[in-house]
Nucleic acid binder design. Structure first.
Lengths: 187, 187, 187, 187
DNA sequence: TATGAATGAGAATTCATTCAT
DNA sequence: TATGAATGAATTCTCATTCAT
């Protein structure tokens, strides 16, 4: 039964646990138990613990992210473009919620994982698309805050009674305001 | 030599390493080696690994935080009050940078540490002082984003060439804008 | 090689060392070295150090003990029954000598192990079958002394030159005399 | 305050804890905390942990024991002598209850403490005074059981409602019967 | 007659990983 | 496509003991 998709089930369970409890507090034993398989089975599908994470990172976000960047590269650097980048990014995040939750809550850990650098690069690439490096400090803050707002809101608003899509929109609204404000400041 | 202050030296080194590498990736061996003492020495001063963190949390932030809340409690719930809360909070953060850095980057870990609940409570208490629970979702986001902005900026702006005080001011400015915007929305 | 029986080999070696040197003086390192495996191997088979002991206790004595009690429950409370209980118990002890040796010589330790309560319960259950709670103090002493005599004799008579079966019989004889004497006193 | 007797207070508390929880499960920290002093203070009075025990053993039982043996040596080897030995021994035990409780419940531990050999010697010396080495096995058992009965009864009868002196007498009665019975058998 | 600060040795336990089957 | 059995390295923690003051 459940054939072929074992690989993905492992990724999903792992990601969920990594996000919930942290990467190092989550043992392979725990993951395998929750899946009803042996630890050794995980090693049939993945080379290492880190590999489970790395592959999930790629499977869930590599392509959409590349597409976003590719698209942005062909646009003029206007405010409209920046706002659309934010919109697309907010959807990208929503599609890979557990992954972003994991990254948001395990930043220290991330730093010495292979994907840590990638994740950092991505944020900086996005940042470069929306900010002006010579703008005043406050505008830099606005731009990184815009990104952070979207990363964090899904979990920050855990106590608020609303569905994910509404939250996404609210976060996007604020993020876009921040970007707009920073963009204006640059004139 | 170095008499009496061993306890604090332990806290400082631990906090630094916890923030840098994460709580679980930092072993007591590492801490003690960096201090030039034995692992056992740590246990003379603290009951557990977690206790090092807990005590640092309290020694560095309990009093200032309590004072901030105490002060806020006696103020009218005006925009000016809210802005002043943000200002004071930004200074509180600056005084305990390593602690806040740790909390920002180890949220998953924090969740099953004793201080996790405390830290969460604090954020929510502050949030309650600046937000209106019946305001639209976007305004809720503005308020939590304001707090997040200050928590994150010290490290987010690592690549920006400016001193800590300037960064603090820039982050505060953006945070205050967000709070102002949310406050207006509530009218 | 030596397939499948590792679990029991661990129990046996552990029990032997526990009895010889005491439970806490016996380290898992010692057990594993004597078996030619790693400490970690013990943890593949048992959850904790205490679990090795608990499982040995159950594997070696749970069933025979339950059968003894079950049998006794269906007998009339005569002297003959009591003497037969003692006889069966003496054989039960002989079958699990290392276990009883351990319990006899580690009573203080036993008290804060999970099996401590069980062991105590057992002795009291047996005691209830052979003594009369309203009998004079001396008769109470006779009955517990009867049990003690059998528990202790296997090791007490270490310096005496005789085989185990002979010692068992001798101890049983004395124990039965004590029970008989207590029973007569109750008339 | 409490001057001069600190040494004995340490012995008493230690003995009590050793008996209750076992020798190795009892740490010097625990002993010192219960006394309201520092661990280091214990080292002013005693050279090692074992030394606390050794000295207590001597202070509480050396002299009375030596006197008992000395007395016995000058008596004829009659039944009356044996019975009187038991009587005196039962009183000796009562005077040093915690010590005997400790020895009874920590036999495995005792084996690798210095006093272990002493304690063993004593029991064998007493045994030699009351038993006939050429007697049948059952008579050997009677004699060691007599000693065991007295050692164990103080704690075995914990659930029985009677005072220490009554219990001592009851245990003595049974022990004397056993000795008598063994003595008769030797004719 | 004590204490504060520290150490060295060792304990139990956990974990990612391996490999023959 | 898995599992059972095991390992080696590390970790947190505890303890008896020491010594300058």
């Amino acid at each position: 039964m459940s054939r072929g998709n074992t690989r993905q089930r492992i990724q999903d369970v792992a990601l969920e646990l990594f996000a919930e409890q942290g990467y190092e507090k989550t043992s392979l034993r725990e993951i395998s138990e929750r899946l009803g398989v042996t630890k050794a089975a995980l090693y049939y599908h993945f080379k290492t613990k880190e590999d489970i994470l790395t592959s999930a990172f790629e499977d869930y976000s590599k392509k959409p992210y590349a597409e976003l960047i590719e698209w942005a590269r062909h646009q003029p650097s206007t405010l409209e473009t920046k706002l659309e980048i934010m919109r697309r990014y907010s959807e990208l995040i929503l599609q890979a919620t557990p992954l972003f939750r994991f990254m948001q809550e395990n930043q220290a850990t991330l730093r010495d994982l292979k994907i840590g650098d990638d994740a950092k690069q991505r944020v900086f690439s996005l940042l470069d698309l929306i900010r002006d490096k010579d703008a005043p400090l406050a505008d830099q803050v606005r731009c990184s805050s815009a990104l952070f707002t979207m990363h964090a809101s899904l979990f920050t608003l855990a106590d608020v009674d609303a569905d994910q899509e509404e939250k996404r929109k609210a976060a996007l609204e604020v993020a876009q305001e921040l970007v707009t404000s920073a963009h204006r400041g640059a004139d």
